[in-house]
Design a protein around this nucleic acid. Structure first.
Lengths: 122, 122
DNA sequence: CGAGATGCATAAAGAGTTCATATAAATCTT
DNA sequence: AAGATTTATATGAACTCTTTATGCATCTCG
């Protein structure tokens, strides 16, 4: 399972069914790359393709039950691993980290804006 | 320039000349991959190969002037980008982040230990 | 209705990787 | 000290994931 595959599944889980072109743009790969990737994930039973009634050119990609389970399991594993790490900190450290959460969120937001500004050029 | 290349240059800059096998282990790729990568970086003038007097099987990889400049420029660019991000925070947020630095360092250390325990098995 | 734009698929090619294996040099064994 | 084994690197084939170029079907707009 490639990184891009995992990210795409997570996007589908987070935002619902999507067309190929959207997924390619979101994950930062070309459309042909996403087409191939979706085919592989379909063969693995993680997603389904369905046509879009209002535009017959469009392929909508849906997460299957298996795909949903995969995303959830992976997410849970990540949460657990992170929780174990946090558990290794001292109480003071945990408190300091908690106090810094708004700053970290703000940093993430600022970086998103940065990417929006620089991304299209690259 | 691949991610592994950049990481390898940074390692050479941080720890000095290294043999191919060491670099492969540090960067988590196979030895043949590192051999190819070093050849490409040599052709780009970023590193030099030199034999090891005490063991004629060994190829020591040295950072060239150009390689050093590259690493420094890249590092500076990263530092600048991060500084710009930080500059977008409020004073309170910066203070909170500063207070959390020991916790973050501790987290990084714990994760290193995790990788040491799980890495060899995978 | 026709021209151009849009969405997806496919094929070819390139980058970066692993696995299997070869070669040379060092180290161990007896 | 000779032979056997291990170690360091190189090479070749194959695989994965990617991009570019391009084709086809469908939509949109004048």
């Amino acid at each position: 399972m490639s990184i891009t595959s995992a990210a795409t599944l997570a996007t589908l889980h987070r935002t619902g069914p999507r067309r190929i072109t959207d997924l390619a743009a979101i994950e930062g790969v070309t459309q042909p790359a996403m087409t191939v990737l979706v085919r592989v994930m379909e063969e693995s039973g993680l997603v389904e393709r369905r046509g879009d009634a209002s535009d017959k050119r469009v392929t909508l990609v849906w997460l299957t039950e298996a795909g949903t389970s995969y995303v959830q399991a992976r997410r849970q594993a990540g949460v657990d691993a992170f929780a174990r790490l946090i558990d290794g900190l001292t109480d003071d450290e945990i408190e300091a980290l908690e106090a810094a959460l708004p700053a970290l969120a703000h940093l993430a937001e600022l970086e998103d804006q940065d990417r929006d500004r620089e991304g299209p050029q690259r």
